[in-house]
Amino acid sequence: MNILHALFKTSIGKKVIMAVTGLILVGFVIGHLIGNLQIFLPPEKINEYAHFLQSLGKVLWLIRIGLLVAVVLHIWMAVSLVLENRAARKKGYQSQKTLRASYASRTMKYSGLIVFAFIVYHLLHFTVKSTHGEDFYPMTMLHGEKVYDVHTMMVLGFQQPLVSIFYLIAIALLSLHLSHGFSSMFQSLGLRTRSWSGLLEKLAITISVLYFLGNAAIVIAVMTGMVGIQNPDFASCCPVEAHEVANAKH
């Protein structure tokens, strides 16, 4: 039996791909969150971190391609599974009760779709840097080198209520997605057994809640002004309100 056939053409194989790509993406989003939480440290820390990532060069591209492949596979398999599932029951029930399935598990395709839309926006916003004007992507000096001031970029981003609200909604949905996905991937890989399935479910919920709180903390900290712009060169280039907030901090 060809392993590729087993993975891409059978129901269990597709779920394995979902699980493995899901695992990669869970690892990524948690790492990403930990990186972002450096916003609560002096600005140099997160800027150093961002610069370090940028300086990886080819490795960064490898990571990016890897993540892209994971996302594409995750979505491709999801679409394929959903289409097969639809085809498996063309005529539905007049009434069908939900016996046990969690809300999260029943809304995976919707939470997934919205999160995907968010990711596209998010990449355009912070990676491609094309959603906002040049003013939103300031530079700063770090160890004598001119680098992007990621700290200020984040603050500027979340100071816009619409961006923040979209961000919060997306993070909430991603957390919901994770709360099912995290334990589900263990099941799909055959690692969820009765002896620890209870613990696993709790772990999944805990991780999802912590993930949401961590991300929300950044947005809320910016929105409430607990974290502000600390770039001294900023006065000349930033929008008025942001400038005022920055000054107030000083």
């Binding site: 269990i12 099941q187 055959g190 690692l191 057994t193």
Partner: peptide, 30 residues
């Protein structure tokens, strides 16, 4: 269709067979 790990099957099973066997099948299959 495909299993999406919601375990409605186990809840409906008149013999209350655990979804743990699905996990085992996934593992054995892999």
């Amino acid at each position: 269709g495909n299993c999406t790990n919601q375990y409605e099957c186990s809840a409906a099973c008149p013999k209350e067979i655990s979804e743990e066997f699905i996990s085992k099948l996934n593992r054995d299959y892999l």
